[in-house]
């Protein structure tokens, strides 16, 4: 079966206009099968664009994409609890991806997806959640290939989908504290949405000048873009059914085109890698997590 290509939820605080334009182009041009929509990182951002989401979803569906709602990764406040409950009620019939155990509680007993923040690291957890209705799992971005392969076998036996992130910044941590606000001498409640100034995240550089991390509100991300393009040809046999691209301030249509071509075998891994490098991200790529090494590293494929 052909592997699905998916587009993860936008992690950053992009303006409503940027989001509409971005998804319009994705709907018309991107070779992705599924698009995850919704705010996963900070509930304060949602009011800026959530009114547009139904129209964006319809536009994407008109472009032949499947739409899945992603739930918040962290839930503390009343409004976050309510929003999660509302999302999980699933009144529009679209699927929901749970990123917090609160969402799992609402979704138990009905078909749903389990997102990368849910810490599905092993077969036992997958089996448990599948029995509760989960039919598709996205694994944590730090999972090494050796464990993904075991999960692939388990997923096949359970008849569930298995997804891994193959492109974009890795989520490395979330916190209750907003580090964007902190950098600007504010707090989460008084942030004035300063994270909107950094549509690809706020870089953190070590004191000796090495680029290290990226801050996105309460989230800390990798400085590098994860890219597993050179391993994509092996992933289908491992039982991976879907490949996730995380939105960055880059030409995501072109990124999707390269991954689609490699996944379909129309372009070799080496050729695809050259094409990806030619897109000139200005950001280093990494594959360390996949190889069980430090996540920031980019290790050449043994030929």
């Amino acid at each position: 079966m052909t592997q699905q290509l998916t587009l993860g939820p936008i992690p950053f605080h992009w303006s409503a206009d940027m989001r509409r334009d971005f998804y319009a182009r994705i709907a018309d041009e991107a070779e992705v099968d599924t698009v995850y929509l919704g705010e996963v990182i900070c509930s304060k951002r949602a009011p800026f664009f959530e009114a547009d989401l139904p129209e964006i979803a319809e536009r994407l569906e008109a472009g032949g994409k499947r739409v899945v709602w992603s739930s918040l990764a962290e839930i503390l406040l009343k409004r976050e609890r309510k929003a999660t409950e509302g999302l999980c009620a699933g009144e529009d019939g679209r699927g929901v991806e749970a990123n917090n155990a609160a969402a799992l509680r609402h979704l138990a007993g009905q078909p749903h997806r389990v997102g990368p923040f849910m810490n599905v690291y092993n077969e036992e957890t997958m089996r448990f959640l599948a029995a509760k209705g989960a039919n598709h799992f996205t694994l944590p971005v730090e999972m090494p290939a050796t464990s993904v392969e075991v999960m692939g076998t388990a997923a096949r036996a359970l008849g569930v989908g298995l997804e891994i992130q193959v492109f974009g910044r890795a989520s490395l941590a979330v916190s209750a504290r907003c580090y964007h606000a902190r950098a600007h001498g504010r707090t989460k409640d008084s942030c004035l949405f300063v994270c909107e100034e950094d549509p690809d995240g706020m870089p953190l550089t070590t004191l000796d000048g090495t680029e290290f991390l990226v801050v996105n509100g309460i989230q800390t991300m990798s400085r590098t873009y994860v890219s597993l393009l050179e391993f994509v040809p092996q992933t289908a046999a491992m039982g991976v059914t879907a490949l996730r691209l995380m939105p960055q301030m880059q030409d995501m249509v072109a990124v999707a085109g390269v991954f689609r071509a490699v996944a379909d075998g129309r372009v070799s891994a080496d050729e695809g890698t050259a094409q990806l490098d030619a897109l000139g991200f200005g950001v280093p790529l990494s594959n360390g997590f996949w190889l069980g090494e430090a996540g920031y590293r980019r290790i050449a494929r043994a030929s």
């Binding site: 990764a73 941590a173 430090a294 996540g295």
Partner: peptide, 11 residues
Amino acid sequence: MVEGRCSLTNY
């Protein structure tokens, strides 16, 4: 960081 959701060391 939210415990159980931190991969900074692994990175």
